[in-house]
Design a protein around this nucleic acid. Structure first.
Lengths: 343, 343
DNA sequence: CTGAAAGCGCTTACAG
DNA sequence: CTGAAAGCGCTTACAG
């Protein structure tokens, strides 16, 4: 089984007695018009017959454009990211780019290491899903002058574009729904305040609750150690202890809401009969939980698409200033929220 | 804001008056010993200070090794794939490779197109999670002499290595569990028979049921149109109609099992009181369904790791013959299976 | 319209 | 131990 060498421009050119630069012009649609039609046709026919694929790495070296974009995720196994990734990939591919996806965890030093790898591979830009509110890694990217956009989580300083879901609105929808059902004792389990989502949802919760003129003893906020089911469960325990009159919980995300389910079940409390729970994200299959989770749906796929578009436009206009794209979330009412128990 | 040019070997070399080939030798750990220690130290210090990262694209062009591996997925949003991907990435990165992940859908023409893109980018090998039992795309890859390994789904012809979970064993565990609980009227909703998993799980089911000496009227198999919740629901309807005495369903995977939940609920049948349901895969959060799903856990992360290892060894020994790595699944008993209702 | 040449940033025989 | 040179497969001014 002879290891068949890959074809090159020269190979093709030799077969039909043209210079390889002519073949190059033909293979690139943008320069094809520079060569005579009949020659172009012959080249194309041969390329097709031989299954010739120009070496994009070589082209990239020459043109200084790799066509590669790095996507840095904290954890691909988190169900929010796959649809975001699909959105990113869809628009990138359309423009001839391809994403290199890396799981970089939450450790900033490791993230930076991973980004260095990516830069060594000449990625033209980066999509960061790992941003914290004040992120040294973003700082680093900016210093390197590598085009960056943040997705899902934003950053405070406006140093780079980002696309996020509107957290303030989301929490307004959440609290309106709960208050509308009659709740007057509402708890919020916030995500980590180092993350924009954790911070802003908390902020949104507080504003919404004040808007409804709830007073000090009528609402309470507690922070979960992370966006995870386990941390949600643990935070729910604390919240229950600190705020015994509570009839509804606005969870920082669906994972935290699942932790609330776990906690309530363990304590023999029924949802929504004793306590209503509302999540955030509408991740896959939360409609199949028991009870089906009321939550706020964020436009994950679109979020990925927008992030990719933002990056693409940053690549073509490096000096345009940073923008924030805020997507509108939607309340999805299911079975985990109901009127509070009659007092 | 001047667009700072990326540093090259020559830039560094010029600064400390050595030839750039010397810098090259120092930057590569494998050739570092060829240069004098003090020179190496100076180079390294400067590289570090300047944040120099050698251009891997240029190196790849020269060495004919891109360090890129293509991973072809039917759908990243399917929860089985993210952990597999994480496993692949973990071992690849360790060896200095990086995966390019593409969502190629299920259409074979599109898959082939996407693979052509990947080949144009000089990927050194491919991991295919899209394989069908007789797959023209695999055929194509083999003809192109590009190293390939299949993951999750295998292929019949043994033309390439694959890593899968042991479906026959899985179904034995499934049926043993159900029979052990007292079931004697067992249905199986198979996945598409064009996929190795669909085919083999069905085969495993039939063998297991015969092993227990169940006779013709005591078991039944039906095929779902796809591995999806909706197809599961639809197939469950049909199965219920064709096999009214049924007390347990072995679903082709967890999504199909969720479709069974939907169907049973719609018909007012209780699980597990009226009918037991058992899934396959143990995808995230099925323990939070109601009832918590009894299922067969497959070693997804490890599956990805093994696939990457197989590919890596194929890359270093292209002539070694194809192997199949079969991972051992594990029965996870939860709340969706119980003794059949007293007759 | 086509060819010849330079050069992208590396690696690696080959001299010395 | 170090330098000079060739070459990986392209693109693209520059001639003609």
């Amino acid at each position: 089984m002879p290891e068949r060498k890959r074809l090159t421009l020269k190979d093709l050119a030799a077969e039909i007695n043209v210079h390889y630069s002519t073949v190059s012009r033909v293979m690139n649609p943008a320069t094809r018009h520079l060569v005579a039609e009949d020659v172009a046709a012959r080249v194309l026919a041969l390329a097709d017959e031989r299954g010739f694929r120009p070496n994009r790495i070589a082209a990239g070296l020459r043109t200084q454009r790799s066509g590669l974009v790095g996507v840095v995720l904290p954890d691909i196994a988190n169900p929010v990211f796959p649809p975001i990734l699909a959105g990113i990939e869809a628009v990138l591919c359309q423009q001839g780019y391809v994403p290199i996806v890396v799981n970089a965890g939450t450790d900033k030093a490791r993230q930076r290491y991973v980004i260095d790898q990516l830069l060594g591979r000449q990625v033209e830009g980066l999509v960061l899903a790992t941003a914290e509110r004040d992120d040294p890694v973003l700082e680093y990217c900016v210093a390197q002058r590598i085009p960056v956009v943040m997705v899902n989580r934003g950053e405070d300083t406006g140093r780079a574009s980002c696309v996020v879901s509107d957290s303030l609105l989301a929490m307004r929808l959440t609290v309106d729904h709960l208050v509308g059902l009659g709740h007057r004792q509402i708890g919020h389990i916030a995500g980590p305040s180092t993350l924009s989502t954790g911070f802003l949802r908390r902020e949104g919760f507080v504003r919404a609750v004040r808007r409804h003129r709830l007073r000090a003893g009528q609402w309470q906020v507690i922070e979960a150690a992370s966006y995870s089911r386990e941390a949600g469960r643990e935070a729910c325990e604390r919240l229950l202890a600190e705020f015994p009159g509570m009839t509804a919980i606005a969870a920082g995300n669906d994972l935290i809401a699942m932790g609330c389910y776990d906690c309530l079940r363990a304590r023999g409390l029924r949802c929504p009969d004793d306590i209503s729970v509302i999540g955030h994200n509408d991740m896959p299959f939360v409609d199949a939980l028991s009870p089906p989770l009321t939550t706020v749906r964020i436009a994950v796929h679109q979020m990925g698409e927008e992030a990719a578009k933002l990056l693409l436009s940053k690549l073509s206009q490096p000096d345009a200033k940073a923008v924030t794209v805020e997507l509108t979330p939607e309340l999805i009412v299911r079975g985990s929220t109901a009127a509070p128990p009659a007092a």
